[in-house]
Simulated assay, not measured.
Amino acid sequence: MQKAGATRLREFYRRHNVRSAECIEQRVALLARARPLCTDRALLSPAALELARLVDLLETGARHITAYDQAIAEAFAVHPKATLFATLPGAGPVLAPRLLTLFGERLERYPDAASLQKYAGVAPVCERSQGRV
Rank of each mutant, 00 (worst) to 15 (best):
R33P: 02
V28R: 03
A47M: 10
R35G: 02
A52S: 12
D69H: 07
V133M: 13
L49R: 12
Q70S: 07
Y13L: 15
G90Q: 09
P97W: 05
L58K: 09
Q117W: 15
R14T: 01
E50A: 14
H16D: 10
E105G: 15
V133G: 13
I65T: 00
A114S: 13
Q117D: 14
S129W: 00
L31W: 01
C38M: 05
A47N: 01
I72F: 04
G61F: 08
P89K: 10
S129C: 05
T83C: 02
T60N: 10
A4G: 06
R63N: 11
L99R: 04
D40E: 07
A91Q: 07
Q2F: 01
A77P: 06
E105P: 06
F12T: 01
R35S: 02
R15E: 15
V125H: 10
L100V: 05
N17G: 04
F76Q: 05
A71H: 12
L57T: 00
A71L: 15
T87L: 12
F12P: 03
A113R: 15
C38A: 02
T83G: 12
G90W: 09
R10N: 11
T39S: 09
A34N: 04
A52G: 09
Q70W: 03
R19W: 05
L84T: 08
E22H: 09
A123P: 08
H64D: 10
T66C: 11
C38E: 06
L99Q: 01
I24P: 05
V122K: 11
K3C: 14
R132N: 13
G131V: 02
A21Q: 12
L102N: 02
